[in-house]
Design a protein around this nucleic acid. Structure first.
Lengths: 233, 233
DNA sequence: CCGCTTCCTTGATCTGGATCAAGGAAGGCC
DNA sequence: GGCCTTCCTTGATCCAGATCAAGGAAGCGG
């Protein structure tokens, strides 16, 4: 319970409109549940309804459980982001910590009831949904029409954009997810991910540092390998 | 121009709140553009910004153009549905008519500006985005982790749900999309789609009628082939 | 610092679906 | 109704990535 207020304040500051009345603020707060997840710990939403989560700190994967231990990672999220966990449909969903996290969670229905009158919060939710939809569509394109090498390039470009640190023209990544996670996100196997990364390393496009560090030496070269629309044409 | 008012009224009735002032109503109307698309005609959005479309009548595919003539169909939509065409990102998007359509289109930015104050319209947009996200996530799971047979089963179940006609315990589908469209939606080739459908036909699970008709004899059997979470377990 | 576990890499083989290649059926148009 | 185009089906072959199978390196716990 100790730092619930901190995490909630963080949420309130980023999401709730500045002019929100104290009463409304308190109603949101009374709805919030605070979760602290250690690495590799999961929140299972298969029986709960849909939830809206604010990830105050840390990073998580949103996992869909398809049949027979075939899981698909639907999205990664990092500190400061909001996400929605869908209600169970043909699959069940869970959220699993890649790094220690602090999460503020709300049942979607209750949250929407409070937010329904507030066009600003609704706008924020809409923005977030639109962004998630955009990412999901790009992912669908990658899973439907891209080779293993292209998917890896797209993954690295996406991570560079979201959690990369630029240093001397190179981009440093400290990936919180394992090779298995990358594979489950890209619809590949762990072996294929490893081989494609090795190939990029052999070409000098990237360097690896331990298990989680990756240095992108040439982002433009990665773009060239991503199979995006030809800019040259 | 003849039936623009019809299509717009259809849109207003389904989407805009009942109590909306005439002035606001007119502002939406002044933003609307009306398009009539014949079969196989496209609207190209690669240079326009993001748009919100209301599909008054007909059915369309939302296509993402990946490199080298590798297209991925991101979504199908049918009469009465609203959809958003994303802004060009790593890919460009277009909308192509599967059957003759009437479309009311709005630039997303302008639409949001008008709608921003109206919590009801925002809620409606949010619902739609959430629904699209849910469909897109299911599609991503299918593309990432499902076999060709499972994808076909999932596709048929989805179409049964959206445009199926129940008759004597069987479900009649009149698919507006070609085998090629199905393939481009499922991340397969046209040959594989055809082979899997033939296999289902051989098993008696489905019957085909001409090019576009499919009869689902046993929806439960299709569920069993879809590789969804085991209900039996 | 050493041993152990877990995760990653690399190699060998296998296979589902892609690709290549013909026909064959629908359905449009004259 | 017959021709012609387009789309669909089926068969043969091929290949990217899965699967199977060992090692090897990180990083943890003692």
């Amino acid at each position: 319970m100790n730092s619930l207020p901190d995490a909630f304040d963080h949420f309130a500051m980023r999401i709730l409109p500045a002019g929100l009345s104290d009463a409304a603020h308190l109603r949101f707060q009374s709805l919030a549940r605070y979760e602290k997840l250690e690495c590799d710990q999961s929140l299972d939403f298969s029986d709960a309804g849909p939830h809206i989560l604010f990830l105050a700190r840390g990073s998580i994967k949103l996992v869909a459980h398809a049949s027979r231990s075939r899981d698909q990672i639907v999205a990664f999220h990092f500190g400061g982001e909001m996400l929605s966990v869908p209600r169970r449909d043909h699959y069940s969903y869970s959220v699993c910590a890649l790094r220690q996290c602090r999460i503020v969670s709300f049942p979607t229905a209750d949250f929407l009831e409070l937010a329904a009158d507030d066009a600003i919060v609704m706008g924020c939710l809409l923005d977030r949904a639109t962004m998630s939809l955009q990412r999901c569509r790009e992912k669908a394109i990658a899973l439907g029409r891209k080779t293993a090498s292209e998917r890896i390039a797209i993954f690295l470009i996406g991570m560079a954009d979201r959690i990369g640190n630029v240093q001397e023209g190179r981009i440093l990544l400290d990936l919180p997810m394992s090779r298995r996670d990358i594979a489950e996100s890209l619809g590949l196997t762990i072996e294929t991910v490893s081989r494609r990364l090795s190939a990029l390393r052999a070409d000098g496009a990237i360097e690896t540092v331990g298990r989680s560090g990756i240095i992108l030496n040439d982002l433009a070269a990665l773009h060239g390998r991503a199979g995006f629309l030809c800019e040259a044409a």
